[in-house]
Design a protein around this nucleic acid. Structure first.
Lengths: 124, 124
DNA sequence: CCGAATCCAGGCGGATACTG
DNA sequence: CAGTATCCGCCTGGATTCGG
């Protein structure tokens, strides 16, 4: 019926408080869009063109779910042609900072991860 | 043929360095297991019994993928009965700290997220 | 230009049964 | 006890098409 409902649902924590956030932004495009929107407001097609490999459907889907959780705001400028502006909310910016920290961890330990993978692949 | 290959794969970054980590630990059980193993070494059945709702298959699958990336170590004690011990590596502990930070963010802003959801659901 | 609906493949994740 | 293999449902995510 829909085809556009939120891709991400948050359920049980199982004693790990980070689980909710991880599953919230652990989908394919949320972190990319948060990263992009952190650089200022964006129009729809701007986003569409900026991210290669991102289909229009998943763009809307992801934006909606981010908007739903108050991480992204959408302001519609009616007129011809119509234009929608997307931007991070304060909450979104605050989350984005956490993701930045994670990003720093990633680049710092990237080599160790790939090294571990090679080891694992070689041993068996 | 397999049924046990790694559940998580890390691909493109798309300009967001956090993406890799998020998709690495954004699956259902990785954060839970990391959180659990942070409290010390664990045997297989201990883990199996500790986490409710976690099937044996997904337990092994997730442990293997964590081991593959050097986040978790497995030491097999042959004998009768056989026993496998799982623990965090240094890399795993370092990642776990980052997830703790995310967890703190989660509990701090939990209310804002649910409030935003209510607003969104009510408006349409 | 922005968005929604439909259709469809692939992967995650669960249930179950079988080995050393 | 610690896995492994098989079958299967569901959900994420991509391609395409249609509407305002």
């Amino acid at each position: 019926m829909d085809g556009l409902t939120a891709p991400v649902t948050v359920d049980d924590h199982h004693g790990c408080p980070a689980t909710a956030v991880l599953r919230r932004v652990g989908d394919k495009w949320s972190p990319v869009l948060l990263s992009l929107l952190a650089r200022g407001g964006y129009g729809f097609n701007e986003l569409d063109r900026s991210v290669e490999g991102l289909s229009r459907r998943m763009l809307i889907r992801t934006l909606r779910s981010l908007e739903r959780d108050g991480l992204v705001s959408r302001t519609v400028h009616a007129g011809v042609p119509p234009r929608s502006e997307y931007a991070l909310t304060d909450l979104g910016r605050s989350l984005r900072e956490q993701l930045n920290a994670l990003g720093r961890w990633a680049v710092t330990h990237e080599a160790e991860l790939t090294a571990a993978r090679r080891r694992y692949a070689e041993h068996t």
